[in-house]
Simulated assay, not measured.
Amino acid sequence: MPTLDAYAPPGNLDDLDDFGRKAWNTFISNTVDEAIQGPDPQQVLNDSPRLQFYNLTRTNTDTDVRHAPIKWTAFPRVIKITSISDLQRWQRADASRDVQDEYCEWSVIRDGAGKITQVTFTSEGPEYWEILAQTNPGKVLELYQKFISPDARKEDLFSPSGRYEPRNKWNNSTSHGAMHLIQPNNTLGAEIELAAAATIRRVINGQELTTEQELIACSKYGAPERNSDPHIGAGVNALARQKADISLADPVGLYFDDLSTDGWETPDGSDPKSYWTYLRGDSEHRVRAVYEVPPDKGFGVGDITIGGRTIEFGAQIADFITIRLTGIACRFGDSTVPPQIACKEFSAVDMREESFNAAAFSSSGRFLDPRPTLSYRSSRVS
């Protein structure tokens, strides 16, 4: 297979004009190159370069290519393991987008009686919206009016100087809409960095590391308490141990994999999954979904039960959603990149920051993630 001409937008979305698509390709390509290079070896030891990771626009993909979907549950595991009951964890997860850290965020609409009528979910990275706002701000407003509220106005979304505000009034809560991801670590930059870092094989004291937790503890590419980070890292590293070259499939993004409705029941016996609808992205790369019952059915989301309990929180639905990314690998058995024989180490300053972040919880229960978050603003279009 030849090299890719350009990285496509997430979900193969068609919002970007020609200039925007070029800007998007530049952003993804540069971010992949930075991830391959890795951190400065003078500041971070045993974590660079990541030579089994490659850029699809610079290196060809060989004919032995395999696609490797990696999936995880959308409900934030950090909240789950720090809560004392299902009710508490659902309440906490629905209270703030800042705790929805599995690359899936949601917002809930209720009727006058407080019963849920709609839950909207998104997996769209903020970087895409930054570039769209720079290259076609009118499209940003159009999409907010279509998917969030016809009352959205340009001044709600952009600062007086014209800068797009990701945490605007229509995208900063769990009750007024969710256009794209805003949790600080839910970025495509974090996805790319994590995948690249996980391609480093680790042989410690003569034994190659293979399990999710020992890999993430040694390579420090994410938060071990999450569903996503350890699972992504282990899936990528399993390919690396087969001495393959690895990348993320185009279009690079985080996508909805499925909604399982086992144990769900509707008042009229209809299929509960029939009320799950994808709104953005192509058939293989869905980035926006809604759970909503049509008005003519005579009941709402809040009348559906899961395991005998009515749906009172969007988080109950998130328990049954899976998110995925797709890695690709080729040239199996050909890589001559040697494994690292020590774990990732930080300078004194970096170590203090890592230790603080890994243990820090705010009073609201928000977990401060040690994953590197690459700034999409650094690729700003001029």
Rank of each mutant, 00 (worst) to 15 (best):
L368S: 12
N357F: 08
S364E: 13
T336I: 02
V337Q: 10
S362R: 04
M351L: 10
E353H: 09
Q340H: 06
E353S: 06
P339W: 02
T336V: 05
S363M: 06
Q340L: 03
G365R: 14
V349P: 00
C343M: 11
V349K: 02
A348V: 08
S347L: 04
K344P: 00
I341N: 09
E354G: 03
V337R: 12
D350V: 01
V349H: 02
E353P: 01
K344S: 01
A359W: 03
N357K: 14
P338Y: 10
E354Q: 12
P339Y: 01
P338C: 03
F356L: 14
V337A: 10
A342V: 02
R366F: 13
F346D: 07
N357L: 15
C343W: 09
S364W: 05
R366H: 13
E354N: 14
F361N: 09
A342F: 11
A348I: 03
C343A: 13
T336S: 09
G365P: 04
S362D: 15
R352Y: 02
S364P: 00
S355I: 11
F356E: 06
C343V: 06
S347V: 04
R366M: 14
K344D: 05
F346P: 03
F367R: 15
F346C: 05
F367S: 13
R352N: 10
A360N: 11
A360H: 07
C343N: 07
M351S: 04
A360F: 12
T336W: 00
E353V: 08
A358F: 01
F367H: 12
P338V: 07
P339E: 01
L368E: 08
P338Q: 11
A348Y: 01
Q340I: 00
D350Q: 10
L368M: 08
F346A: 02
C343Y: 04
N357W: 07
D350Y: 05
E354Y: 15
S335Q: 06
A358P: 00
S362P: 07
E345H: 01
A360G: 00
G365H: 10
A359S: 07
S362G: 14
P339H: 02
A359E: 12
S363W: 10
V337G: 00
S355K: 13
S362H: 07
L368F: 14
E353I: 07
F346E: 08
V337T: 10
N357D: 09
F346S: 02
S364A: 12
S335T: 02
C343D: 08
F367A: 15
S335H: 05
P338T: 12
I341W: 06
A342E: 15
P338G: 06
T336K: 09
D350S: 04
L368W: 13
C343L: 04
S363D: 14
A342L: 09
A358E: 06
A342D: 15
A358D: 09
Q340C: 05
A358M: 06
C343Q: 12
R366I: 15
T336C: 00
N357I: 03
S364M: 10
G365S: 05
Q340D: 09
S355Q: 15
F361C: 02
S347Q: 08
D350C: 00
F346V: 01
S364F: 06
I341T: 11
N357V: 03
K344C: 01
A342K: 14
V349D: 05
P338M: 10
E353K: 05
F356D: 07
